[in-house]
């Protein structure tokens, strides 16, 4: 990043989140909700379908964390513990140091959500229900006992996921009403007015990179949904 980019005065709204990141986010919200509903209602065919789609989204997001635009990259938003501590102190003193992209705490919250979602999906793939009737596509490779264990991990992880989502939403509300910063609209429109002093960086998604990511994600999700039988 050249110094001239970083010192340009904020001129209205600038791109913050690229399209794939936003589609990922809102598709994930909808599908996590749907997976919850279908799981509770034992609508297993649709629960599995929703899970495979989430798996595809997660694989894509992993790819995008390396090849996506600036604000979507892990290297940009996974910051040192020192940076997180400094930011947290400011936050609780109600001093908001604007970030362009994920702030140092938000970045780790994203990582925690992604790891938890991967665990959730991973456990589901091996899970077997108590009737031995419904199961994930990879359960054929493990014993009934291991499959039951996976089902228990699947369930326990969901509690963790709900807690993280609650924290996530609470944090957004804290920004909205205490720090007077709207994080929701940018996640929809992709654009934001940069906060004063924030270092603006160009956000550009490469269509070819996105295409490659989508193909990889779809291939992985499809192969796993078939239980790796071709």
């Amino acid at each position: 990043m050249s110094a001239t980019d970083a010192t340009q005065p904020p001129a209205g709204k600038v791109p913050l989140w690229d399209l794939p990141t936003r589609v990922f986010h809102w598709a994930l919200v909808a599908l996590v909700a749907f997976s919850w509903w279908s799981g509770e209602n034992h609508d297993m065919d649709r629960h599995r379908l929703s899970g495979y789609t989430i798996l595809g989204l997660l694989v894509f997001r992993l790819f995008w964390g390396f090849f996506g635009s600036r604000t979507a990259r892990f290297s940009q938003f996974l910051r040192s513990p020192g940076a997180v501590a400094t930011y947290a102190r400011g936050l609780f003193a109600r001093r908001h140091t604007p970030s362009f992209g994920h702030n140092p705490m938000g970045g780790w919250s994203v990582a925690a959500l992604l790891v938890t979602l991967f665990t959730m999906v991973g456990a589901g793939l091996f899970a077997v229900d108590v009737d031995g009737l419904e199961s994930g596509p990879l359960s054929d490779y493990v014993s009934f006992e291991a499959g039951r264990q996976a089902a228990e991990i699947h369930e326990a992880t969901f509690t963790v996921l709900l807690a993280l989502i609650a924290l996530h939403v609470l944090a957004i509300l804290y920004y909205r009403f205490v720090l007077k910063t709207n994080l929701i609209t940018p996640m929809v429109t992709g654009k934001a007015v940069p906060g004063e002093g924030a270092k603006i960086e160009p956000v550009r998604a490469h269509p070819l990179a996105a295409l490659i990511g989508i193909i990889i994600a779809a291939a992985v999700a499809w192969a796993i949904s078939r239980g790796l039988r071709f």
Binding site: V128, D131, R229
Partner: peptide, 17 residues
């Protein structure tokens, strides 16, 4: 019950193939 569960799973695996 574990025996029955195991058997159900084994049959399910055969059907999936």
């Amino acid at each position: 019950y574990e025996k029955m569960g195991k058997a159900m799973k084994a049959i399910g695996g055969e059907l999936k193939s």
